[in-house]
Design a protein around this nucleic acid. Structure first.
Lengths: 262, 262
DNA sequence: AAGTGGTCTAGACCACCTA
DNA sequence: AGGTGGTCTAGACCACTTA
């Protein structure tokens, strides 16, 4: 398999484009094509979470490329968190990350680790319309219909954060509250019910005073009504890069902090 | 060059260890050895910032390995931010990152970008002793002597953050205020004066009320004395992984937020 | 012993940059 | 045209896991 063959016969997706010139932006490195093909097969559910892919050599034979090329494609998918490898055992489909994300929590005692026994509580779904900012981030029209999934996070029984996940109501038409009630979270539900695998793209931090509504949810009342809160905005995208979820979270950070490694 | 040759003759550092058994943890993959060797030569200043390394083929010939192996080592150093590549031109030594870090700032308008015209102001050096937490993080003994470098950050002339960088007074004995005054920051100074190249290892965020001392420095006074601030703790390490700097920053985040991509 | 990921090589060719 | 990074192959061997 060579540049030439890709250039003016067909690529691995079967989109035949004969007699294309080599200058055409069409040509992608082989390993990128392999990567995208595997991405498709993963998102289409060909292999379940924690299930092994065929071996590098089998994939190489199947796709008629060398093992090194398959390996390079797999390495990128591992780096993106979609797969993981185990020496001597195989390459497996990764589980979708939790709604909290992969950031560890830490006690106020600065860099001491803390077992993340954070418990998730589903509060409800409501409807809303996209503000200008959210519409832009999710690539929707202004005031497009949204679903808002509200969650509460408890740490050792004590409420420590509230969450609003905003999703396109059109894209996720039919999402039911019952699906979320006993589930592992929004991301797990999107994968299971809609086949959409999501990953965090960026996160934004600022310090604010906890708004009244969130104060009530977090049980902050009475004398100490004015507390600072960590406001976290997060944009999550599907594997193809399409924005999927906008999330706004208020965290009480006197109990712990959010840590980003590297 | 093979596993065997590494195993019981000599490695690339010239540390001859004859007749070692292969089980000894001594053996590292070739590309890791190449990487560490290049790391040494970089930190020893063999090439300046923005200066090109020899080509992959030259290095391969020089080190008596294949181009692919050199390439793999370089790729990891690029991923760690020590080098960057330019197609058709070469592989270059990266500049040390600014004291602010590589995180972009953003306006309150949510994911709109902002030109980072953040200006740095050196306030002074003082001495302190390591608290238990800081001592543990920097791997020093409790109450070890520290240097504290204080900086102020302005955005469009307005103070938006204060910084304390804590460094081991023993390791950086002789650090002078004059070195910092006109410089590009602490990290640039550590590289230039001590040959220590530093990178951020982890960062921790929480929301707090701005303490009195920092309020004064940031010009928050009078009626609105109580403002929430983003508290950022950061641990930075040398290229060999040794912890070097503990930094504590207070940011006024009503003007902007800190964003982490990916 | 067989299978899987992980490393390494030598050689080839492509795409981009500089002169 | 010549140099540099970037891709690809075929074949070899190593290290770990499982049966």
């Amino acid at each position: 398999m060579s540049y030439i063959r890709l250039g003016f016969t067909t690529d691995l997706f079967g989109d035949t484009k004969k007699s294309m010139t080599l200058q055409q932006a069409y040509k992608q490195p082989l390993y990128i094509q392999i990567k995208q093909l595997l991405l498709r097969r993963i998102t289409e559910g060909e292999w379940q979470e924690r299930e092994p892919l065929p071996s590098e050599w089998d994939l190489a034979a199947q796709l008629d490329v060398s093992q090194g090329t398959v390996r390079k494609a797999l390495t990128e998918l591992v780096a993106e968190g979609l797969l993981y490898r185990e020496q001597g055992r195989g390459t497996f489909v990764a589980q979708v990350s939790s709604d909290w994300g992969d950031d560890p929590l830490l006690t106020p005692g600065l860099f001491k680790d803390l077992s993340d026994d954070l418990v998730y509580e589903f509060l409800g779904i409501s409807r809303a319309n996209a503000s200008e900012d959210v519409a832009a981030a999710l690539q929707l029209r202004r005031s497009a219909p949204l679903l808002r999934v509200r969650q509460l996070w408890r740490w050792q029984g004590v409420p420590v954060a509230v969450d609003d996940a905003l999703l396109s109501a059109e894209q996720f038409d039919g999402l039911e509250a019952s699906w979320l009630r006993g589930s592992a979270g929004v991301y797990a539900t999107l994968l299971r019910r809609f086949g959409v695998r999501v990953r965090m793209q960026c996160q934004q931090f600022r310090a604010v005073m906890l708004p009244r509504e969130e104060s009530a949810l977090l049980g902050v009342t009475g004398m100490v009504a004015d507390v600072p809160a960590l406001s976290v905005l997060r944009l999550s995208v599907a594997v193809d890069g399409q924005p999927v979820e906008w999330r706004h979270r208020y965290c009480l950070s006197h109990k712990f902090a959010i840590t980003i490694v590297k």
